[in-house]
Amino acid sequence: MLNVSELHSFYGRAHVLQGVSFQVAPGEVLVLLGRNGAGKSTTLKSLIGLLRPRAGRVEFGGVNVAGWEPHRIARAGMGFVPEDRRIFTGLTVAENLETGRQPPRPPLPAWTPARLFALFPNLGQMASRQGGRMSGGEQQMLTIARTLMGNPRLVLLDEPSEGLSPLIVEQMAHAILALKQAGVTMLLAEQNLHFAARVADRAVVIESGRIVWAGTMAGALADAASHLQV
C-alpha cells in the first residue's frame, strides 16, 4: 500500500527527516512511535505533501507521489488527520464533512454522513452545530470523519489521542478499531504507548529523524522498558 524509502525533509535549514524508510501493508494499522520532536508529524506531513520532501520516494499504490501537491495525493486516496484538528470552525459539522467529500473508491463502500454518524454518534446529534462550538473530543471525531468523506485507502492519523480525556480516548480507540474492521489501512503517529497497543498491529520507532526500530506491536511492548523509553 505504502512504501516509504530514504525520505529527507527540511524545515528551512533544519534537516528534520534524515532518511526515513518503512512500509504499510493493506489492511494493517502501523504506529509510528517517538518522542516530541522526533519527526512523527513531519513524516506524516511529508507523506501528504504539506511539506515537500527534499529527497526520497513515497510509493503509494505503486506510484511515487513524493513532490506532488497535497490535493493530488489526497485524491489518490491518502487521507490526513492533523494533530491540531484544524476543523473549519466557521462551518457546521455537516459542512465540514462536505469539504472532505470526494468520489467513492470501489470496491470499498462509500462513506456518507449517515454512515459516519453511526460510527461517531455524538456528531449525528449536532450536524448543524458550528465547528467552533464543539468540545475538543468532538472536534477530533469530526476531523477523522471529515477525512473519511474522501474515501481514503490509507489514513494518516497524527496523535489522535493527544489532549483528550480518558473517556474520549477510549471512544477513539473503539472508532479506530471499527475503521480497521471496515478495511481502512491506517498509519498512526503516537507517543501514547498504551493507546498504540490497543489499536496497532505493527510499530516503527523514530528518533531524531531516523527509524531506529521496527517490529510487531507485541514486540514493541515487550521491548518497551529496555529499548523505547517513550
Partner: peptide, 22 residues
C-alpha cells in the same frame, strides 16, 4: 459546495488542500 469550500479556504487553505481540494 463551492461556497462551502470557499469559506473553508478562508480559514485554512492547507488543510483544505490535504482534503483533496484543488
Amino acid at each position: 459546495r463551492w461556497g462551502t469550500l470557499v469559506r473553508a479556504a478562508t480559514q485554512d487553505r492547507a488543510m483544505l488542500a490535504a482534503l483533496g481540494v484543488n
